[in-house]
Structures are given as C-alpha cells and as structure tokens.
Write a protein that binds this DNA or RNA. Structure first.
Length: 502
RNA sequence: AGUCCCGUAGGCGAAUUGGUAUAAGCCGUCACCCCCUCAAGGUGAAGAUGCCAGUUCAAAUCUGGUCGGGACUACCA
C-alpha cells in the first residue's frame, strides 16, 4: 500500500512554525516511503478563514521547499461530502439533533466547574422525543448535530511515536458537535473533527502525522472512522515546539510566522534543517547539518523524540551561519546584491561583479544571517524578543565599500587623534602609487611604514582602518584596502582622515 | 477539576533497545590560540539521567509511587 500523508493547515493565520514543522515531518515521511504528500486547506471556519492566509501558507511551504504532490484541496469545495456523511450518521442513529443554546451550555459548564467537575456536554438532548424536538423547533431554535460518544467505549491506538495510547469515551467531553447550526438548512457547516475524518477517508490517507495537541481529537476521530465504516489510519503525534517558558508556541506572541524568519535573514535550508532537528535525530546523531532531501533518506518515526522541544534562537543562528559559510561566493553574491541595491548603494551588478564577489568573499565567512531590509521592524522585534539577538548585518558590514565618503565613529575619531596616527597615514599616503594594490603589497607598505616611522604595527593598522572604513572594527584590513583601492577610494579617504588627524 | 502526554547539563539531543571502567555530539557559557579590531575559525574546560523505592549479577533503559512541566477538555482548527 502506498503511503499517503497530508498537511492540513487552516487559513486563519500566516504559516506558523509549528504547522511548518508538522509539514516537514509529513514531507520527510512521504519522501522516505516513496509516498504522496497532500495539501489540504481546512477552511470550514468561515468567520476566521481568509484567502490571503491561504496564499501565505502556500508560498511559505514553497519557500521551504516542501513541495506537495496533490492539492491544494479546499474543504469549502467539498461540503457535499461532509453533508452526506453527517446525514448517514443521522440516519443510522449515531448522531442526533441538539437544541441547546450557547447560553444554556455556558451555564452548564459554569456549574460543572463550580462543582469542581470537568466541563463536558451532559448529552441532555440525546434522546429527545419527536414532540420535544417539535417544541424546540416551534420556539425557533435551530439544532447542531452531535455524534454519540458512549461513556464506556475504550479507544486505543498504537502511536508511531508514543506507543499505545488509550482513552475512555467518558473523558471525551460528551457527545461532540459535528455540524454547526444553520438558519436556512437542516444543519450547517461541518466541524473540524468530522471534516478531517471524511477527507482523510476520501483521500485515502494512510498515516496521520500531526502535533501532540491533537491526541484527544484522535480518540474522537477513531470513533468517527468506525462509525463511517472505514479503516483507521496510523497515527503519529509529534512533540510540540515550545517557547522559552516551555509552553506551546503561541500564534500571537513572538516570531512564529515563517516569512518573519525570512525577513530576519534566515535561509529556507537552515530553517528546514533546524525544524527537522527539533524532535528528530539522524541515525548518526553527530550529523546535524543536512538538507531535507538527505534527512528524508533516513527519516523514521522511531527516531522522533516524545518530549517537546524548546525553540533555540542561538542554535538556529548557528545553523544559518553554517549554510551561509558554505555557500559558494557567487551564490552568496546573488543573495546580497538585492540588499545592496535596496540600501541605495550605486554599482553595476554586471561590470562590478568581480569586485562585488571580493566583498562577499571577505565578509561571507563571518555572516550569521542575511541582511534585514526593514530596520524599524527589526528593532521592534529585537526589543520584543530579546532572544533573537542582533547579529552583524552584511549591508552595514560592507557599507564603507559603497559610499563615497565614510562617516567616522567616535572611536574612529579618537583613533585618529592617537599619537602616531598622522605620521602613519602620511607615510602610507606617500607609499601609495597608482599601481594595482595586492594584499602582499598592502602588507608590505604597512610593514615598511611601521619600520621606517618606528611605530607599533597596531597603531598603523588601527589608524589605517579608521581612515579607510571610518570604524575601528570590521573585516580584514588589508583585503578591505585592496578592494577599496580598486575603486580608487583609498586615497581620498586617507586625505580626509589626515585633515582630522593630530 | 478531569483525562492524556512528557521528564538525560542552560537549550537540542545520543546511548548498539537491560550490559564496555570517564553517559556521545551540537548550540550556548568560559578560557586559550589566531589577530590591528569585531566576527568567523581552531583548541580546551566546566556542566546532566527530577526524586524515592522495587526487579536484576547489572537500570538512563523495566515496574510502582512521587514531584515537576505541558497539552486537551468549543457551534476553532
């Protein structure tokens, strides 16, 4: 039997990191098994579903490289299917009409909680007579459809990550609503548990892989599979991604939307890698950097951890840096060019290409994340979620190559006032001719100036750095100088610095 | 309140399924090296089986209890 799995997000928000991780596990399992990965949009909640969220989810999955084989299917286009299933359950006496109002149910729950009981529906309308029903209808009440759950039923399945899980019918909260109320029709929109089961049956899903938060739903759904006369699929309940406090990652707090990770400068490869690592380990557990394709070759559920995993920004940063460091210079340059353009730097992507690649080669090995376009947004994120941490921004790191004139930081100004700074810069200026500058030549000049002027090498280097870059920190100085020299920027900067130096 | 799930260093996680004297590896932290600087990189250090019983020649691994954490208990998904 071919493996068929699905990811079934609901378009009530942007693609969430938790949903994405579930998608990753489904995708990995499908690819490992040579199976089919299906995308289904669960949009039966008309009030909260929005088409822009659907768009966001689709784009997010694509960005992560989680290509699907079938779909997207939309539940709102499959309403007939659910209607038939609900009617069938009604006809078989496995479901019934419940006329309780929301206020009545609310009151009932309050009373239960006050009595320190677990809140549950008390099945009060399970055995309504025709007269009682007629009376409620006459009042103008419209029913929901409830599926009967016998208290003494025992539900049990062999979970692919957790082993045997057993549930009692009495702990499922009473007979469950499977269809909403409708003013105009016999019954309204189907509810999650019903629609999921009908779809999973119809789409011949063999393995249901989803978050641990669905365990209780699984018990209810198994009952529905049986009521509808279908085989029950395999289930795998994956551990949740937790926040720093150890709670389920909320959709409302913090960075959880996939495109926020993109905006923060993470690559899809790094994010996919990290999400895989959150709960799964390779048979060679020392291997932590891998593509989704590589992970798929060895992905099995017996290597999925049971305990929830806290999201660790530091580790994600590190993984992202590994990807950026390994990226060939030419590819990294491709990634950086749009950001340089966006920053307003003037250059010709074509003719300046070799020059740009030198800059990339210089800063590439120390990058953690790609640049962030929206600085204000970043600053806001950094204050909201301190764990994200500020990392060196590639655009800022390379700014001094692109601007015609650098602005001196306070530290750089101070350096130019240092004893020997002026002497060093003058000597360097005199040593510069119009020839091409190589790293060797640059080092030679520095060495020569150090010796002839009887200065410390540190003074010469620091002063030169301040003069050329306007800062006292930054990438390798001789390389920077060489690159600046190619654009003839070094002489003017030395001149400008000398006017400020003591 | 009930039910279910989970518990290996600060975080992620491995341990050939009960068996090797020091319980892997990675992130983070700290130190050192490199170095004009900041990163990156290299080397090294500190740090853990929640607790209590039991079974056994032997327990991170099995059992019971206990403590702690989480999820769920919708006319949301």
């Amino acid at each position: 039997m071919t493996v068929r799995v699905r990811i079934a997000p609901s378009p009530t928000g942007n693609l969430h990191i938790g949903t994405a991780r579930t998608a990753v596990f489904n995708w990995l399992f499908a690819r490992h098994q040579g199976g089919t990965f299906i995308l289904r949009i669960e949009d039966t909640d008309l009030e909260r579903s929005r088409s822009e969220y659907t768009e966001n989810i689709l784009e997010g999955l694509k960005w992560l490289g989680l290509n699907w084989d079938e779909g997207p299917f939309f539940q709102t286009k499959r309403l007939d299917l659910y209607r038939q299933a609900i009617q069938k359950l009604l006809d078989q006496g496995l479901a019934y009409r419940c006329y309780s109002t929301e206020e009545e149910l609310e009151k009932m729950r309050e009373a239960q909680v006050a009595r320190k009981e677990a809140p549950r529906y008390d099945n009060r309308h399970r055995n309504l007579t025709a007269e009682q029903q007629a009376a409620f209808e006459a009042e103008g009440r419209r029913p929901v459809i409830r599926f009967k759950i016998e208290d003494d039923r025992e539900i049990s399945w062999n979970d692919m990550v957790r082993g045997r899980i057993t549930w009692k019918g009495s702990d499922l909260g009473g007979d469950m609503v499977i269809a909403r109320r409708s003013e105009s029709e016999d019954f309204g929109q189907p509810l999650y548990n019903l629609a999921v089961v009908v779809d999973d049956i119809d789409m011949q899903i063999t393995h249901v892989i989803r978050g641990e938060d669905h365990i209780a739903n699984t018990a209810k759904q198994i009952l529905l599979y049986q009521a509808l006369g279908s085989a029950v699929p395999e289930f795998a309940h994956t551990p949740l991604i937790l926040n720093k406090q150890g709670q389920k990652l909320s959709k409302r707090k913090g960075v959880t939307s996939i495109f926020d990770f993109k905006k923060l400068g993470f690559t899809p490869e790094a994010l996919g890698n990290y999400m895989t690592l959150l709960g799964w380990s390779s048979p060679d557990s020392t291997k932590e950097i891998f593509t989704l394709e590589q992970a798929a070759t060895e992905f099995t559920f017996d290597r999925v951890n049971k305990a929830g995993a806290k999201f660790d920004w530091d580790k994600l940063n590190w993984i992202n840096s590994q990807y950026l460091h390994k990226l060939p210079v030419s590819q990294l340059t491709d990634l950086l060019i749009p950001f340089w353009q966006e920053a307003g730097f003037t250059f010709d992507p074509e003719s300046d290409r070799p020059w740009l690649e030198q800059i990339t080669a210089l800063i590439g090995p120390s990058l953690i994340r790609l640049p962030v376009s929206d600085r204000a947004w970043l600053d806001q994120m950094l204050t909201q979620i301190p764990d994200i941490t500020a990392v060196p921004d590639p655009v800022e790191m390379s700014r001094y190559f692109f601007v015609s004139q650098v602005e001196f930081t306070e530290e750089a100004k101070a350096q130019l006032q240092q004893e020997g700074a002026k002497t060093a810069l003058e000597a360097i200026q005199n040593a510069l001719d119009n020839q091409e500058l190589t790293a060797e030549l640059a080092q030679g000049i520095i060495k020569q100036v150090t010796k002839e002027q009887n200065l410390k090498k540190g003074v010469v280097m620091r002063s030169l750095r301040a003069a050329l870059t306007g800062d006292v920190h930054g990438p390798d100085l001789t390389e920077s100088w060489v690159i600046l020299h190619q654009k003839k920027l070094d002489k003017a900067r030395l001149q400008e610095a000398l006017s400020q130096a003591k």
